[in-house]
C-alpha cells in the first residue's frame, strides 16, 4: 500500500512543471458563525455607504463570490423592502494569464440579468489577493454597460496586491505569506462553512 502511494506521488511530480509542496491547514480564520456575523456587518456597511439599496446591483464572482453575494442579498431583503438585482460573473475569458496556462480553463456561466448602466455595482468575492481577478471582473463588467460606480466587497483581504486595487468593504484582513493559501469553504459549494489558512 505504501509503495503504491509513493509511486503515485512520483508520477504526479513527473507530470507537473512545478512541484507543489503538500499544503496543510495552519490555522482556522473563521468558523460558520464568524462568516454569518461578518456578512451581516458587510450588508449593513454596504447599505449605510449607499444610503439604502436604491440603484444597487450585486454581482458575485464565481466560484464562491456568487454564493456570498446571494447570502448578502438575503440579509439585505430582511432589512430593506426593495429587491436588489443580482448577477454572476465568470472571469475566465478575461484572465491575464491565458497565454501562460497549460490548459484552456472550463468556462463558467455569466449572467447579468439587468442593465448595469448608471447603477451602483457591488462586486462580491471571497478572497482579495493579487487583485488580478478584480481587474478581470471590472473589464468584464464594462462590457455589459457603464455603471455609475463599482464597489468591492470581500470576505477576506490577505494582502500581497500586484495591482492598485482596494476593497471598499472587508470582512477580515489577514496577514499571510505569499506562498500560503486562504481557503473559503461554503456550505453550498464545499459542504461546510469556514475559512482556513493553509501552507507548507
Amino acid at each position: 500500500m505504501r509503495n503504491y502511494q509513493s509511486k503515485i506521488r512520483l508520477d504526479n511530480h513527473a507530470n507537473s512543471h512545478y512541484y507543489i509542496h503538500p499544503m496543510t491547514e495552519k490555522s482556522r480564520i473563521m468558523d460558520g458563525q464568524g462568516i454569518a456575523r461578518t456578512l451581516q456587518r458587510l450588508t449593513h456597511e454596504i447599505l449605510e455607504r449607499n444610503a439604502g439599496c436604491e440603484g444597487l446591483v450585486l454581482v458575485g464572482i464565481r466560484n464562491r463570490g456568487d454564493v456570498l453575494a446571494q447570502r448578502i442579498l438575503k440579509a439585505m431583503s430582511s432589512i430593506e423592502s426593495r429587491e436588489v438585482p443580482y448577477g454572476v460573473l465568470d472571469i475566465t475569458l478575461y484572465r491575464d494569464d491565458f497565454q501562460r496556462l497549460a490548459d484552456s480553463p472550463v468556462i463558467g456561466e455569466t449572467d447579468i440579468p439587468c442593465d448595469i448602466t448608471d447603477q451602483k455595482v457591488v462586486l462580491v468575492d471571497d478572497v482579495l489577493f493579487t487583485g488580478r481577478t478584480i481587474r478581470a471582473a471590472m473589464d468584464a463588467l464594462m462590457d455589459f454597460g457603464r455603471p455609475s460606480s463599482v464597489q468591492l466587497a470581500v470576505l477576506i483581504d490577505r494582502g500581497h496586491r500586484e495591482l492598485p486595487i482596494h476593497a471598499d468593504f472587508v470582512g477580515q484582513t489577514v496577514s499571510t505569506l505569499k506562498s500560503d493559501g486562504v481557503q473559503v469553504r461554503l456550505e453550498e459549494t464545499d459542504g461546510e462553512d469556514g475559512v482556513v489558512l493553509i501552507g507548507s
Partner: peptide, 14 residues
C-alpha cells in the same frame, strides 16, 4: 490554450 507551462491553479485565490 495549452501552449504555456503554468498548471491550472484556483484563480479565486490569485
Amino acid at each position: 490554450g495549452g501552449r504555456g507551462k503554468i498548471e491550472m491553479e484556483d484563480h479565486a485565490q490569485a
